[in-house]
């Protein structure tokens, strides 16, 4: 067990836990955006910064989602420095997200109503990378990636064309925190807006969800019988 102090409370955490996990286990709220418990820590949105004090060093800000619990560490999750920093980061998110309700709401939580700098073009994608990482780490397809660099970074399939490898599973749609990625479902044809080709809509062979793409069913063809025999099929009524 590792002993540390968070907001003046003595806390025990198992080795390998991140500060964010330790905080949440102890009921301490920390805002996050690019974090998801099912994915590897990424540390990009910087909303989860906390202030840490180590012996003899001056304090510094670290991303709680990626920083491991260390013995004797003293952590402040809501100090003046933390608040100041989150406000600036929220304002920077608002620079392109001023038309996105989720971002506007988030910024106002930190008391930011207006961004002093606005990008010429509003954009609800905040490059949190959740979709890209979910597609890679959970789905295992890697149909999309973050392309270009710097301010031109964006989510896209290869060659910025619809992706032939996308299976239309919709994980990216579900995980997107700003509603940037949308499921388009017109006349029974199903596609992930911007990313996948059109697929016929079908009922999922595992869970019987009606919003599954036919491509997904093809892909899981080989595994459904195994899955059914392990009793994980959702199609209980046969």
């Amino acid at each position: 067990m590792i002993h540390l102090t968070i907001d003046d409370k003595s806390i025990e955490a198992t080795a390998g836990r991140t500060l964010l996990e330790a905080c949440r286990e102890n009921g301490i709220q920390i805002p996050t955006l690019c974090y998801h418990p099912a994915l590897e820590p990424y540390g990009a949105c910087r909303l989860c910064v906390v202030e840490i004090y180590k012996e003899e060093q001056s304090s510094r800000l670290v991303a709680a989602c990626a920083y491991p619990c260390e013995e004797g560490l003293n952590v402040k999750t809501n100090s003046k420095a933390v608040q100041r920093n989150r406000r600036v980061v929220a304002e920077l998110l608002l620079a392109s997200g001023y038309d996105t309700p989720e971002i506007v709401a988030l910024a106002s939580e930190f008391g930011v109503k207006e961004a002093r700098y606005k990008m010429p073009q509003a954009d609800s994608c905040i490059i949190c990378g959740l979709c890209v990482r979910a597609c890679k780490e959970i789905v295992g397809i890697s149909a999309i990636s973050l392309i270009n660099r710097g301010i031109n970074k964006k989510v896209s399939p290869p060659f910025e064309e619809t992706s032939p490898t996308c299976i239309g599973c919709g994980t990216c749609v579900l995980i997107c925190p700003t509603g940037y990625i949308k499921l388009r479902d017109v006349f029974g044809s199903h596609s992930i807006h911007r990313y996948s080709s059109d697929y016929d809509r079908a009922q999922c062979r595992i869970c019987s969800d009606l919003n599954m793409s036919s491509k997904f069913n093809q892909l899981i063809e080989g595994v459904t019988s195994d899955a059914a025999s392990y009793g994980i099929s959702g199609d209980q009524n046969g």
Partner: peptide
């Protein structure tokens, strides 16, 4: 700003905001 990889918000958007100013 040109060399920022674009991963984290403060560097990606912040350097752009500073440059525009």
């Amino acid at each position: 700003q040109e060399e920022s990889c674009g991963k984290c918000v403060p560097c990606r958007v912040g350097t752009k905001a500073m440059l525009s100013t």
